[in-house]
Design a protein around this nucleic acid. Structure first.
Lengths: 251, 251
DNA sequence: CAGTGGTCTAGACCACTCA
DNA sequence: GAGTGGTCTAGACCACTGC
């Protein structure tokens, strides 16, 4: 947990997270009152409440009118970078990320990619097809599509040994929002060979649509994960809304 | 989208959500400036910023220093009730929920339930085993465990035709926070029969640990969903944290 | 009834974006 | 340089909890 800034609200939030993660506060314990935090940090209530709101939206505490805030658990949240970058995701969890590139170059956009990337179907986009591994074991197939202006910056890139997203961010590409869809899929013949599994094995299919801060598309990606080793955890507290929706298709 | 209160911040947030959902604002469009919203609602900046923060954490907008906030999409968020109640979840999505109870009564707690419910392994808890359906088609197996003080209130309950959670909430049970874990499972012989599928069919396993606002356990549940009809959608914006973690087990 | 968090006001300064 | 959102202050009143 890095100190993310020198703003008072994030200092206070980090202090509270540390109280919880270091076990100085356990589930069921009370947080310091807002008045105490104001005094401790010589702050007004604004920053204190901003900090407490952050913890609440992370599922760490529950609070309400008239009662002290209560610690719920020691849950961790994902960083924004780990949402769209398999490399960051693996590193943050202590795995050594690996990539083996099967394809990197132009290809005509299919209908699905074209729609999100706002280009014509069949017009050229940059396509990257890789097998991703954790500690040397294959765990996922990655198919990434970039619009030409973004993707042309990786045409001469060593996609086996560096993070594409780190490189693009250094080039000024702004990854600001990600829309994810998780569903169930079955391994095709081709992907089964890449992952060294049987065709038809169930997989997690994760589809990512990534935009910059103006809402312009910068990437459209599909990742197929081996399902047996993956778990998705969430904690939600009444009164907060998480940007999540479980959908059910017509049957 | 119901008006959730008469507080200014939620009135303003609902106004903004309506602008987006009614297509008066489209992805890429600018939100009104905070100053304009202050004037329009005769409000100070506090409530306006609280409203805007809510939309940001729902993934609807992106904002940043020096620039107008931008609409990202028309994503919907799940209500808190729909997280822990299959009945609410189905109703909100326009399906007719159904339940067929296979078992309702006491049973000795296994190690897993005992740990979360904070009772001894083997001591009695209330167990409900149901097949859930949407529009008459089976879609999930539900196994719910309640501590005695909570669960004893449903021993004479018609679990086929009423929502257990609605009933318990009327009895004063406080469902305040939910920790969820989603993973991949394969249908057992027994569950396959209940769902009218082949044994070994891949399913989503959703495990719920539910607590009241003090952090005391009120329910521990496992739901196995037919995977082919389920999708999970999320939108995240840089700078906000969602209470979510994608975990990878050693392997 | 004292203490708590939820809501709101009316200012202020700053960092940043964009025309 | 005007406008914007991010941060902060110093108050205030209220609804509610728990003693």
């Amino acid at each position: 947990m890095a100190l993310r800034g020198t703003q008072q609200h994030s200092i206070i939030a980090d202090y509270l997270r540390t109280l919880i993660r270091s076990k100085k506060l356990s589930p069921g314990d009370f947080l310091p009152s807002e008045a105490e935090l104001c005094e401790q940090f010589s702050s007004s209530r604004g920053p204190v409440r901003q900090a407490v709101a952050a913890l609440r939206s992370e599922g760490l505490i529950s609070s309400g009118r008239g009662r002290r805030s209560v610690v719920l658990g020691r849950f961790t949240s994902e960083s924004f970078d780990s949402i769209y970058s398999v490399t960051h995701w693996l590193r943050e969890r202590g795995f050594e990320p690996g990539a083996s590139t099967l394809w990197l170059g132009r290809c005509p956009a299919s209908e699905q990619e074209a729609e999100f990337l706002r280009v014509d179907t069949g017009s050229p986009v940059i396509f990257v097809h890789r097998v991703r591994s954790a500690n040397g074991m294959p765990i996922a197939i990655e198919r990434m599509f970039f619009p030409l202006d973004v993707g042309s910056q990786i045409l001469n890139f060593d996609a086996d040994n560096e993070s594409i997203h780190d490189h693009l961010r250094k080039q000024g590409v702004d990854f600001d929002s990600v829309n994810r869809e998780l569903s169930l899929a079955y391994a095709s013949e081709e992907d089964a060979r890449s992952l060294n599994i049987d065709p038809g094995t169930p997989l997690w299919r994760l589809h990512l649509d990534i935009s910059d801060h103006s809402g312009h598309p910068v990437e459209c990606t599909e990742i197929l994960y081996l399902g047996d080793r993956m778990t998705l955890g969430m904690t939600n507290v009444r009164g907060t809304t998480s940007p999540l929706e479980v959908k059910l298709s017509e049957g």
